[in-house]
């Protein structure tokens, strides 16, 4: 899907500092920019610490020039820990999608969610939990189709530190594989089920 339905598509990556949240968002944004098809805006908020603390990065994608650069209503929330899942879940639009790292998030607030053990996969498949962000990015790319995996891979290879390309690539691909097991059609249509009449 590089053709967007609405005027903007909004993704938020969230977790704790050091999980590579911002890197994942930047790689995605650069890949989308490089494809030349859509406009993209990537922002982040951060505290003073380089490790630990909370980390949040947003990517807004649009056919047109992007005015307001931040998230208005989230289409997809990636939560890499419980705190960020709890904090940001309310920002999802009703038909939005929650994606969590089930290694670190066990209380999931909606059934319209995809749980994948990103950190566990990173350790198993790529040998380092450091690349959990790329596993997650693989899943996000597959689920949103905002960019072709191929285009993203070439950005990823150019963007990650020299010598870590293969490890990151492996992580990214295992993320795609993990996400392929899910069928979005099977999920409930909204994140908050309509109230049932009693």
């Amino acid at each position: 899907m590089t053709k967007l339905k609405a005027d903007r598509y909004e993704i938020r990556f969230s977790g704790s500092g050091g999980q590579g949240i911002i890197t994942a968002a930047v790689v995605l944004a650069e890949a989308i920019a490089g494809s030349g098809k859509n406009h993209v805006c990537q922002t982040q908020s951060y505290g003073p610490e380089a490790r630990g603390g909370t980390s949040k990065a947003e990517v807004v994608i649009s056919k047109d020039l992007i005015d307001y650069p931040k998230v208005i209503e989230l289409d997809l929330l990636l939560a890499m820990n419980q705190a960020s899942c709890d904090t940001y879940f309310p920002d999802l639009k009703p038909e939005g999608l929650l994606v969590v790292d089930s290694t670190l998030v066990d209380q999931i607030p909606t059934d319209r969610s995809i749980s994948i053990p990103f950190t566990q996969i990173a350790v198993k498949q790529a040998g380092k939990k450091l690349v959990a962000n790329m596993v997650a990015l693989g899943a996000v790319v597959h689920l949103t189709r905002v960019i072709s995996p191929k285009a993203l891979e070439s950005t990823l290879m150019a963007k990650v530190p020299k010598g870590t390309e293969q490890m990151n690539l492996k992580a990214f691909r295992s993320g795609i594989r993990a996400a392929k097991k899910f069928d979005l059609e099977q999920l409930p249509p909204t994140v908050t089920p309509e109230e049932e009449e009693v």
């Binding site: 650069e30 989308i32 406009h39 993209v40 805006c41 990537q42 922002t43 982040q44 992007i66 650069p69």
Partner: peptide, 9 residues
């Protein structure tokens, strides 16, 4: 800070 750190096309 918003303009400075926003990455955009």
């Amino acid at each position: 800070e918003m303009v400075a750190h926003t990455r955009e096309t």
